[in-house]
Amino acid sequence: MSAPLLKIEKLTHYFGGLKAVSDFNFEIPEGSIYGLIGPNGSGKTTTFNLITGIYTPTEGKISFQGHDITGQKPFRIVHRGIARTFQNLRIFGNLSALDNIRIARHYTTRSGLVSSILRMPSFKAEERQVRKEALELLDLMHLSHRATEKAKNLPYGELRRLEIARALATKPRLILLDEPAAGMNPKEVDDLMHLILRIRNEFKVTVFLIEHHMKVVMGICERIKVIDFGETIAEGLPEEVKNHPKVLEAYLGKRGA
């Protein structure tokens, strides 16, 4: 097996005196779909925030494609190839769907300030290219009809797709999805599962997701890690995790086990 895409060693994070993530060790092989589950407040989103550089971990090391990215600024981590979505959507509401995507392509553009302000041919060529690619991506996400619409006017399911499209526009190797199925109806959940599989199979992007929706987790994740109070309590194949006594205890309380 080749080196892991993402490798996390002894990751620990405190908020004041509170231990939010504790001794988190983890490797994601390239091309997998990996799930992170746990009860509310167990430290899942904090882990995502640590990986994407929003928080700097108290201890531990995060490597991506062999590079140490611990404590780097979030935008630099994006440039390295990690993208994410948010539990509570964070779209650019007053901008068009197209602009939402184009902004995610910004860091790969090369036109400087001068050529942009003078609108030189090279700038126009690049704008054309970015626009074309963004429209293609919207098309793949079945959002073309919304290209010029203000993002905040899109229905919820489309916003979720737009956010994923925006993450993909940064051309990531790894995408972190924070509860992508939250608030979706069964039909939308099915579509989402197909979409996640497509992200991995067609875009060749490794997927790491937080999810409460067990159908999604059990249906598409190849491996699952379960955490509670910041500590890993189980890890393995979906079937192994499902019946793990500690997992049942964490979710259902002691008596349920």
């Binding site: 600024k73 964070r90 779209i91 650019f92 901008l95 902004i103 860091y107």
Partner: peptide
């Protein structure tokens, strides 16, 4: 514009 709209999201789509 993306900073105005949502600074965290801007940073996390690669905007410095």
């Amino acid at each position: 514009l993306s900073i105005r709209e949502n600074e965290v999201a801007a940073e996390l789509v690669g905007i410095d």
